[in-house]
Design a protein around this nucleic acid. Structure first.
Length: 187
DNA sequence: CATATGATGGACT
DNA sequence: GTCCATCATATGG
């Protein structure tokens, strides 16, 4: 027994954004604030790319692009409207890819997390996490879900769709979510 | 400093 | 579905 090794490593994120976005579903985002631990299951994600992606202001923006090109597992916090959106950098270093977390399901607390801006608010995620990574800190990381990780129990269906709220999207389904989950954002 | 913009959310029809 | 309040950024003067 001993310690279960549930924390996701760098190699998980060092793959195509689309693949990571898909496999991130069902994983558990762990956030520690002031000694309190919040666990939330990721139920909705979107993949973002570099210059070929007309959606991304991020690619035009030097600061964000730099972070997107950073090591896989880096955290990218993007402020838009009155919200913070959290992304995780994927792909190889220098590749400019990221996955946006759009919705999570609270596991050991209650909150409205049915949207990218809402979940960051609920988990007290802000720009102080920007440009950190998921491996070298005690405030935030991602774990394998003990239930869904085994396979049979708590299994779910993954649905694909076009991204939400973007002016000019790619003709590609880059949004992934757990079918039927009540915490998936809707529009 | 002024202004435009947007990967939102919520209220409303 | 549509409309709009709101605010952190980027960019220009």
């Amino acid at each position: 027994m001993g310690e279960k090794l549930l924390k996701l490593g760098k190699e998980f994120f060092a793959r195509d954004a689309k693949t990571v976005a898909r496999e991130l579903l069902g994983k558990v985002l762990v956030r520690v604030v002031d000694g309190e631990t919040f666990k939330a299951k990721i139920v909705e994600t979107e993949a973002y790319f570099d210059n070929k992606d007309p959606a991304s202001r991020a690619c035009k923006n030097g600061n964000l692009k730099e972070v997107m090109e950073d090591e896989p597992g880096s955290i990218l916090v993007y402020g838009v409207h009155n919200n913070w959106l959290i992304n995780f950098v994927t792909g190889k270093k220098g590749k400019a890819e990221a996955v946006l977390v759009r919705a999570v399901e609270p596991l050991n607390f209650e909150a409205n997390t049915k949207g990218p801006g809402l979940l960051t608010k609920a988990l007290k995620i802000d720009k102080s996490l920007h440009h950190k990574n998921l491996f070298n800190n005690k405030e935030i990381w991602i774990e394998e879900n003990e239930k869904t990780g085994k396979g049979s129990e708590g299994s779910f269906e993954i649905a694909e769709a076009y991204r939400i709220g973007i002016k000019k999207d790619l003709p590609e389904k880059l949004r992934f979510y757990i079918k039927g989950n009540k915490f998936v954002s809707k529009k």
